[in-house]
Amino acid sequence: MRVKKLLSTIVACTLMLSLVACSSGKNENASQNEGNPTQEASTDNGSEGGVKIGVLMKTMSDTYSNKLGTAIQSYVETQYPDATLYLLDGQADIAKQISQAEDLIAKKVNVIILNPQDADGSAQVLDLAASANIPVVEVNTETTRTDYASFVGSEDVEAGEIMGKYVTEQLGGSGKIAILEGEMGQSAQIKRYEGLENTILKEAGIECVATLSASWSRSTAMSTTEDWLGKYKDLKAIICENDDMAMGALQACESQNREMIIIGTDAIPDALQAIKDGRLSATVLQDAAGQASTSVDVAVKVANGEEVDSRYKVDFQLITSENVDQYINQ
């Protein structure tokens, strides 16, 4: 009995110690972060430099979001060395994103760059920021609201149209296709599908035999494609609303030695490499670097009270084996 008590005490103490260790780590960070801007502000007198930029990423774990977040970080470091950046990873959880918005407001940032997790849910961030008089610049995805300072993104409809046109050309206007959709209800899914509806789904010669959601996920896309390959022996092309799903579809086709036109969107590194190796047909680049630099530039302008446009469009580009080399080491 005594041993047991001793043991529980030891465990409890260890847990507490680790808690203290964790929180003290945070404190150090915070004081560092707080130290910088005041220093900067005193030297810069609130010019371009000492702005505090809060960034709410929906996640840092899907490949594209990671690229966008990293690009924002490195752009701020190189172009605005005096600025303080708080970049928070919402881990694909809307409740987390909202509480992180509250954290940023508590830190009194000058501007928030919002990469919404959810078109409706993330709109709350705008309310929270408005009540604290902090302007919000939305990047990549839009919320259902329009009272943001500015939106920097690419028109996802355009990505769908580029994919649709490319596959129509490759098929010579006739053949059977299937579509792998993203998480149903997200703006990227709805709009990329709209782009497909505007183009390939209108073609008389092309038959879309199946449309299913693989929720942006590589493993789900892989199993769904495996199911399709058994059923549709004459399937010619699979259009994927992102590259992770395209890579999953590719993996499934390769393991069954099936020739397939596969196209995705986002130009993630493995997709580019697969295009270079002649395995994947094409991808559409959603220009992460372009979105990152434009959104940071706009955010800094907004923070300094300058006029900005309400929308900035960053164009999509088609990447095939012909032009892949210029993107592969970007």
């Binding site: 996640t59 774990s61 899907d62 694909a92 996920s217 590589r218 493993s219 892989m222 890579m247 999953g248 993996q251 493995d270």
Partner: peptide, 13 residues
Amino acid sequence: VLASRTNSGQPAV
């Protein structure tokens, strides 16, 4: 097995 099937190790999987 999953990482091998998808040829990637993802923290969100």
